[in-house]
Every structure is written in structure tokens, then in C-alpha cells.
């Protein structure tokens, strides 16, 4: 428990923020130059394939952050760990941002390739539902701020939302959709040529670093809020 004391955490947070700040722009420039200049165009889609380098990492981040906050909320509901609550609260807005970005960039990719901005197919609709769950989740922090019901409400949203995650993931395999199936599988080989995988993972790294930076800053803000509230008692 002592390891998780705010005093120890805040030292690491400051170190991490400094570290990310020092390497972020270097990684960003490398990532962008691979994504926009060095990587080849696709045999079929031409240069539009470059949208993939922001679309796919955003979608991955949106999905994984929701899984993390949902599991965190449920663990918090059962075990009542204060830290976990702050963790979830700091992470949620980042997930919402990237889910929205995945939808918007997907739309900008869909227009030149499919010929439409939007289609009500299973993948796109379930992604929109994920965005709504994020909105409910973040709204309930504000609406039920001082209510004792907050953990219950967050848990309910988490349960419903986490069921949606495998639906998003496998929607392209289970049902006929306009969206193409996944190119990168957890098991087995990917159907993206290696010269395109390099910018994809570089951009993923850039966005993950960004997420970590925002998360640490938000987490630090939450710690300071608590300290400020408790200042009288010190």
C-alpha cells in the first residue's frame, strides 16, 4: 500500500512527464515522416491509405481504454479502491477523444474509398454506440458527483459497454459489413505489407505517448484536488 502513496506516485509522475516531453517531438516527427512521406502508397487506394495511420491506432486506443476503464470500474465497485477511481476518471476523456477521432477519420477515409461518409453497418454503428457509452460514462462523473450511487451507475455503464467491445471487434467477421475485416490479427499473419506496418506502429507509439502524457497530467490534477480538499486536516 505504501508503494501507492501519492507522495511516491507524484515523483514518478513528474519524471515520466519530463521524459515524454523530451522525446515526444522526435518520435512525432519520425512517425509523421514515415506516415506521410516515406511509406509507399497502396496498389488500390493510392495515398488514401495514409489515413489508416491515424485511424487504426485511434480506434485501437479507443477500444482498449474502454476495456481498461470498464474493468477498473468493476474492480472498484467490488473492492472500493480509491486510486482506481482516480485512474478511471483520468483515463476516460482520452478514450472518448480517440473514439471520436477514429469515427471522424474513418468517415474521411470512407468518402474517397467506399463512396460514402457514413453507412449504418455493424462496425460503424457499434463504434458510435461505444462513443455514446463514453459520453454517458464521463457525464455521470459530473451529474452524480456527490452521489453514493456513482459506483453503481459507472458499473452499469461499464457492463453494457464492455459487451459492446467484442461486438465491435468481431462485427466485421460475424456479419456482412461495408467495413473491411481486420488486417492485423492477434494470432496469425497480418495482411498489411511491412513497409506500411512501420508507420502504423510508429504512429501508434506517438499516440500512446500522448495518451500517457495526458493521463499523467490528469492524474496529478486529481491528486492535487484531494490534497487541496484535505489541506485543513494537515
Amino acid at each position: 500500500m505504501d508503494f501507492f502513496s501519492f507522495g511516491k506516485i507524484i515523483v514518478y509522475i513528474d519524471k515520466f512527464i519530463k521524459f515524454i516531453n523530451s522525446i515526444f517531438f522526435l518520435v512525432l516527427i519520425i512517425g509523421l515522416s514515415f506516415a506521410l512521406i516515406i511509406s509507399p502508397m497502396d496498389y488500390l487506394q493510392g495515398d488514401t491509405v495514409r489515413i489508416m495511420y491515424v485511424h487504426v491506432p485511434s480506434a485501437w486506443i479507443g477500444l482498449s481504454i474502454f476495456s481498461i476503464i470498464a474493468i477498473g470500474t468493476l474492480l472498484n465497485f467490488v473492492f472500493k479502491i480509491k486510486n482506481l477511481y482516480l485512474f478511471v476518471k483520468s483515463l476516460a476523456p482520452i478514450g472518448l477523444l480517440f473514439t471520436c477521432l477514429a469515427i471522424v477519420t474513418g468517415s474521411l477515409w470512407g468518402k474517397p474509398t467506399w463512396g460514402t461518409w457514413w453507412a449504418w453497418d455493424a462496425r460503424l454503428t457499434s463504434m458510435l454506440i461505444l462513443m455514446l457509452f463514453y459520453v454517458f460514462f464521463i457525464m455521470s462523473f459530473k451529474i452524480f458527483k456527490d452521489s453514493e450511487k456513482l459506483p453503481q451507475i459507472l458499473s452499469a455503464i461499464s457492463i453494457l459497454g464492455i459487451i459492446n467491445i467484442p461486438i465491435i471487434k468481431y462485427s466485421v467477421e460475424w456479419w456482412s459489413t461495408l467495413h473491411q475485416p481486420a488486417s492485423i490479427k492477434i494470432m496469425g499473419t497480418s495482411s498489411i505489407h511491412s513497409s506500411m506496418l512501420v508507420p502504423l506502429f510508429l504512429m501508434l507509439l506517438v499516440l500512446l505517448l500522448y495518451c500517457a502524457l495526458i493521463f499523467l497530467m490528469k492524474y496529478k490534477t486529481e491528486i492535487i484536488k484531494i490534497k487541496k480538499r484535505n489541506i485543513k486536516r494537515l
Binding site: D42, T113, G115, L178, S183, M196
Partner: peptide
């Protein structure tokens, strides 16, 4: 009254194709 193109999950440079 509407046509949408569907593409598959393979991405590669033209030379590779």
C-alpha cells in the same frame, strides 16, 4: 440508386502487387 465500393483488408505497395 447508390453504389458503394468495398475493399478488402490487404494493403501493399504497387510493386508488391
Amino acid at each position: 440508386d447508390r453504389i458503394l465500393a468495398k475493399h478488402d483488408e490487404n494493403y501493399m505497395p504497387p510493386e508488391m502487387k
